[in-house]
Nucleic acid binder design. Structure first.
Length: 805
DNA sequence: AGCACGCCGACT
DNA sequence: GTCGGCGTGCTC
């Protein structure tokens, strides 16, 4: 009799449980559990989800009795060897729990949902308890639905052994089922059925006609109703007569099914594109795990390079992974890829429902889709035999995940490229300094597209010096030159895109008498005004309150909002241009599913002539009639106390400038700024990335910042400020001993937003070139901090943070 | 993360 | 005297 044992990573995200637990596999499950499958296991006195990561037949040498695996949730592994190994690496690289890394690779629908019920085991119970149970003997048992006293009462019952608590673990993943019908009569039987009908039973005749054409084929009820023009009730009655059977069939939720997408053919390539395509194709053919930096100005045809190299991988029977920032995963973008590869494409992005994401994931897993286009988390798509990995807009900071595990999709993509021996293409008009520097050093292969495919010059960029212009400006946010430029375009029936740079900016309420600013009671930041819900909201904890009419501090009525919000600009603009049709696009107007696409579609069909929005309009939009792009406030992102602020500003301005004049019409860009001499703004005006790169590298060198130095951030948080401060200063002291004199520690300091949801945050940043002992120290730090976790003191380590203010 | 075990204060 | 507070430690 063979015995099997499984090593399982349990769904308990804590340092103490960050290790495999061994379970025995009961006889009825032998040869049914494989590494990469989800299982349900007893853990302590409850049940949890876990991932089997290893199966062995050797009895482990332990002094206690092993528990049995309770249930296997999958028929085939949901994570293959590659992804299991990747999870291991990810856990180490990001200092995260293994379980978090395994979970992040799967659609949310495949996580477990936990619930508890309490069941009576005795009949001698008090009337109070009887009332809670009603006529049932098992009811839900959790602190959220029960009142505190009821919970207490039931706990007492449990302690007295008059009731037992049952733990449920459920798989949230559910395939969508739809009703299908299938004829079950032969043509002879159909003919005889026809004879039993009354002559005036028109619908029944129609039903039999339809069933005759259908034969024994199975179709969805929805389609049958469309094809036959018969109602659902008529199909139900046909079922009763025994003419057909109804079944439930599994169906994919395809969010793009409705849209008819025109097929597109590969386009003729410009010489530079051709060189790039040939070079990448070569790497695909030779199974080279090289990384390419594809640096191409806006409109230079990077996408066509992506599409043609993906085609090469597909021709070789391989698959392709294409990552794009969430914000540019627009219907326009999806249409381009689907247009080339049709139903072989799976799309993964945050606009999909949990079920839709699960379905797309299954299409990939079952090899029904060979091309995956998606945002950050799509980097874990269960593709096999990947031939090429593409990351568009590689400089985008949204590729870094903000919560555990804090991975950067760029690192993961390169790691997967190594496993599959395939090229990784990083594309951008404004590469991150890190990638551009690596291209310089020859770590990445550098491919350049310097010309726009339509041979058009880049749009003319002009600056408006707001220090002067503000004196005569028609509105607070719109200068005279910008206004007249807008008027001119509108008169020519052309379109205008206006961008409000809201990075590090919000509209808050301030009293003009006493300077009082309305702040969040839980967090150390001012509340933001939301006109749509007529309330003040905290962007960090979600706290919401009414807009005060008088100052809470001095009772003055002169309390009003400051700052520039899209709503305010929209109002100003509408007053200046009463006939203009303005579409506003920001977090408020795009929150609803599909709203983003709808606004773009409205603008594309010229229902409006001005599109006013935040950063989200800077990327990937391609409207031929847009001839003017205005940036209302270039500086807000520049003034952030952040070493990347110049880079971000340059990237944003370059990108939004690319929105102007993409077809035959020449475009113009107007940038309003208070810092017209700043190099980031000057060089964005001249669209000179290379010069910007040179200057900015110099700045980074002098400041000792990436890419010259590595950085790692340590954040300690907790409810007691004293404890948090003590901990971070303790860590600082230990670090001083471990680090070489070449390393620099910034801080410790309170984070700029020191308090969020009544938790205090302190941080320190280590800048270093080579610290062989650091890695081990950080791992030990996490282990030694596990006791603090119970006392609500958390230590978080972030390798290569995107920014630290 | 839960949950039990265990040792100290304020109540029927 | 007990109930229940939350500090400590364990979960195959």
């Amino acid at each position: 009799m063979i015995k099997q044992f499984a090593e399982v990573i349990v769904d308990v995200p804590a340092m103490q449980t960050n290790q495999p637990y061994t379970y025995s596999i009961p006889t009825e499950l032998i040869n049914q559990v494989f590494p990469g499958m989800r299982v349900i296991v007893p853990f302590g006195n409850r049940k949890v989800l876990g991932f089997a990561i290893n199966i062995s037949e050797k009895e482990p040498d332990v002094s206690f009795a092993l528990k049995d695996i309770e249930e296997v949730l999958d028929l085939t592994p949901v994570l293959n060897t590659e992804l299991l190994q990747l999870a291991n690496w990810l856990a180490q690289w990001t200092f995260s729990f293994k379980i978090s890394c395994l979970q992040v690779m799967l659609p949310a629908a495949m996580r477990a949902s936990y619930s508890k019920t309490i069941k009576l085991t005795s009949t001698e119970i008090s009337p109070a308890v009887q009332k809670l149970f009603g006529d049932k003997n098992e009811i839900p048992f959790d602190t959220k639905t029960l009142t505190a006293s009821a919970f207490k009462e039931l706990s007492k019952l449990k302690r007295a052994n008059q009731a037992e608590v049952l733990y449920q673990v459920r798989d949230r993943a559910k395939a969508k089922k739809v009703t299908a019908i299938q004829g079950c009569l032969s043509s002879d039987q159909l003919a005889s059925a026809r004879e039993t009908l009354r002559a005036n039973a028109a619908k029944s005749f129609q039903m039999l006609d339809y069933l005759t054409t259908l034969g024994l084929e199975q179709v969805t009820l929805k389609k049958a109703m469309q094809d036959s023009d018969l109602s659902a009730a008529q199909f139900t009655s046909a079922e009763k007569k025994g003419w057909l059977v109804k079944t439930k069939v599994e169906k994919y939720r395809d969010p793009y099914r409705e849209a008819v997408i025109e097929q597109s053919q590969p386009k003729q390539l410009k010489p530079a594109q051709l060189t790039a395509v040939e070079r990448i194709n070569q790497a695909i053919t030779d199974h080279q795990k090289s990384v390419f930096l594809l640096q191409g100005v806006t409109g230079s045809g990077k996408t066509e390079v992506y599409l043609q190299t993906i085609a090469t991988a597909l021709e070789k029977g391989q698959t392709a992974l294409m990552l794009v920032p969430e914000i540019s995963l627009t219907p326009q973008m999806v249409r381009r890829v689907k247009g080339r590869f049709g139903s072989r494409v799976a799309v993964l992005h945050s606009g999909l429902s949990e079920g839709e994401k699960y379905d797309e994931w299954r299409r990939i897993e079952r090899h029904e889709a060979q091309v995956v286009v998606g945002a950050r988390s799509a980097v874990f798509a269960p593709l096999e035999d990947i031939g090429i990995i593409i990351m568009d807009e590689e400089h985008e900071t949204s590729y870094k995940q903000e919560d555990m595990p804090e991975y950067n999709a760029r690192d993961v993509a390169i790691k997967r490229g190594e496993w599959h021996n395939c090229p990784v293409v990083l594309g951008s008009a404004t590469p991150s300094l890190e990638s551009r520097a690596r291209a310089q050093k020859g770590v990445y292969e550098w491919l350049r597209l310097d010309e726009r495919i339509n041979g058009q010059p880049l749009p003319e960029v002009n600056l408006v010096d707001m220090r002067q212009a503000l004196k005569t400006a028609p509105a607070l946010d719109i200068s005279a030159p910008l206004l007249s430029a807008i008027e001119q375009r509108l008169a020519q029936n052309e379109q205008v895109v206006l961008m409000l740079n809201r990075r590090g900016y919000s509209s808050f309420l301030m009293c003009r008498e006493c300077g009082f600013v309305l702040k969040c009671p839980n967090c150390d930041i001012s509340l933001t005004l939301h006109m749509d819900s007529r309330s003040m909201k905290c962007h960090y904890c979600g706290h919401e309150e009414a807009i005060p009419r008088t100052c809470p501090s001095c009772q003055s009525k002169k309390i009003r909002y400051y700052g520039t919000g899209t709503e305010k600009v929209e109002k100003e603009l509408q007053e200046l241009l009463p006939t203009a049709k303005i579409l506003r696009m920001d977090v408020d107007t795009t929150r609803r599913k599909g709203a983003h696409a709808k606004i773009l579609q409205q603008f594309g069909s010229k229902e409006a002539n001005i599109l006013l929005g935040t950063q989200m309009i800077a990327k990937g939009l391609d409207f031929p009639d847009v001839t003017l792009v205005g940036v209302l406030n270039a500086d807000t992102s520049l003034s952030l106390p952040n070493f990347r602020s110049a880079e971000r500003t340059f990237q944003l301005l370059t990108q939004v400038s690319g929105r102007a004049g993409r077809a035959e019409k020449t475009g113009e860009v107007l940038i309003q700024t208070f810092n017209p001499e700043h190099y980031a703004i000057q060089l964005a005006k001249n669209q000179n990335y290379e010069k910007f790169f040179g200057i900015e590298m110099n700045m980074r060198h002098r400041g000792g910042y990436p890419p010259y130095f590595f950085t790692t951030q340590i954040v300690v948080s907790g409810g007691s400020e004293a404890a948090v401060a003590k901990k971070i200063f303790g860590i600082n002291g230990q670090l001083q001993k471990v680090l070489s004199p070449q390393a620099v520690i910034l801080g410790p300091t309170p984070k700029p937003i020191m308090r969020i949801n009544n938790q205090f945050y302190y941080q320190l940043v280590i800048k270093y070139k080579k610290e062989p002992k650091l890695e081990q120290f950080l791992e030990e730090l996490l282990l030694s901090s596990q006791k603090d976790a119970a006392r609500n003191l958390k230590v978080k380590i972030d390798r290569d943070p995107v920014d630290f203010v």
